[in-house]
């Protein structure tokens, strides 16, 4: 009955061994089969070898103290709680950045024709502009201030990361 998967009884034998049933305590037909089947005998030998090795390893295992593992878990829980608490602030920060960017972009689009006009008539800046277009000047100043604030905010976020 040996195939590339081994003998069909291997699973039964392994399950019995896994449940703590010794070879000698197995049912008579299964015991007889182990004696006749090379593959199943191999399974028992390998099982015993691993059990022996596992016992040796378990006995010598330099386990970390349970208190230390507990302490580490509380630290991790504390860190996770802090992250959870900061999450809304981060969301608000990102939302503010997105809204600010949108507003800035809208302002730039709205002010673009006026800016192009000013560039075309650059001499207008020297004299009358301040008196002729006080609102536009105010918009330009606001845009510049916004840009500077955004650069500052971006730098602060980058520095924190």
């Amino acid at each position: 009955m040996m195939k590339h998967k081994g003998c069909e009884n291997e699973v039964r034998i392994l399950e019995a061994l896994g449940q703590g049933v010794a070879t000698e305590a197995m049912e008579e037909p299964l015991r007889r089969h182990i004696a006749d089947c090379a593959s199943c005998a191999e399974v028992v030998s390998v099982y015993e070898l691993f059990q022996y090795d596992s016992e040796q390893l378990c006995a010598a295992a330099p386990l970390p103290n349970a208190g230390r593992v507990w302490w580490r878990a509380t630290l991790a829980a504390r860190r996770a709680a802090a992250e959870r608490a900061l999450r809304p602030i981060l969301i608000v920060e990102k939302a503010a950045l997105a809204i600010g960017s949108g507003v800035l972009l809208a302002l730039l689009v709205l002010a673009a024709p006026w800016l192009a006009e000013q560039v075309r008539h650059s001499n207008a800046f020297t004299g009358n502009v301040v008196y002729s277009f006080p609102l536009s000047s105010f918009i330009v100043t606001s845009v510049v201030v916004c840009l500077l604030l955004m650069a500052g905010a971006l730098y602060t976020m980058w520095a924190e990361k």
Binding site: S54, L57, C58, A61, L63, A66, G67, V69, W70, A73, T74, A77, A81
Partner: peptide, 23 residues
């Protein structure tokens, strides 16, 4: 209190399971 169990329960679970897991 924010963890899944109290420290004493954890110690018991740890004593029972840690050695085979480490191996």
């Amino acid at each position: 209190k924010t963890l899944a169990m109290d420290e004493e329960s954890f110690r018991i679970v740890y004593e029972r399971t840690a050695r085979p897991l480490w191996a």
